[in-house]
């Protein structure tokens, strides 16, 4: 969880009026922006889209403050809304053709070392999964949710979550092996990948 400059108002008596104040709501945004932005970024791998959808999520929160009961509810509401918005956005035709472009959003972090290249490639692979599998993987590995929590977030049976997770991991394993090879130098020697196929 990101640590903000100001502490978000604690839901309880009168917290909503505080949250409606600029400082209070800004503190909520500051506290949860990393989670919301990261869900959107990992979904699209595009900073501009992640920023836009992330902001939409907080605007929706602002309009729906009355429906939030507790800090835990606030966090799960934001996570759920961000995930659903990403899926909905992806399903719109305009974003469907869009490939995850932002491989290199932070060139400073562009890596020569294997771990970072592996992460970069895994991010790309996750962002190329079908949208529901992608959401399941992000909630599982970014948000560290259990299957029952993912099921609640995505409003689907646990069995379906397992099924999506199993399929997604299978695809990721296969594609990662194909792209990166299994040897320790495989990532740095990315050019060799074709020969290993």
């Amino acid at each position: 969880m990101g640590v903000g400059q100001a502490v978000a108002p604690i839901p309880g008596t009168g917290w909503r009026s505080e949250a409606r104040e600029d400082a209070g709501f800004a503190a909520i945004v500051r506290t949860h922006q990393r989670m919301v932005y990261s869900i959107c970024w990992h979904f699209f791998r595009n900073r501009a889209i992640a920023e836009e959808i992330g902001q939409d999520v907080f605007l929706q929160l602002y309009r729906n403050l009355d429906s939030i009961d507790s800090p835990a509810h606030l966090e799960s509401w934001l996570r759920q809304t961000a995930t659903h918005r990403c899926i909905d956005n992806y399903r719109k035709k305009s974003n469907r053709q869009e490939i995850p472009m932002e491989g290199l959003a932070e060139p400073a972090a562009l890596p020569q070392v294997r771990d970072t290249m592996l992460s970069d490639n895994l991010q790309r692979l996750v962002a190329s999964l079908p949208e529901t599998q992608r959401a399941v993987v992000i909630l599982r590995y970014q948000e560290d949710l259990d299957v029952n929590e993912i099921a609640a977030t995505l409003q689907m049976p646990e069995r379906t979550v397992w099924s999506h997770l199993r399929r997604a991991i299978g695809v990721l394993q296969e594609k990662a092996a194909r792209r990166l090879g299994s040897g320790p130098d495989a990532a740095n020697q990315g050019a060799n990948q074709g020969k290993e196929r």
Binding site: R34, S38, D120, I138, D144
Partner: peptide, 14 residues
């Protein structure tokens, strides 16, 4: 793979 995924999908700063 799970550990690599956790690392790859770490939260990013907005």
């Amino acid at each position: 793979l799970e550990s690599s995924l956790r690392q790859a999908l770490e939260r990013k700063d907005a």
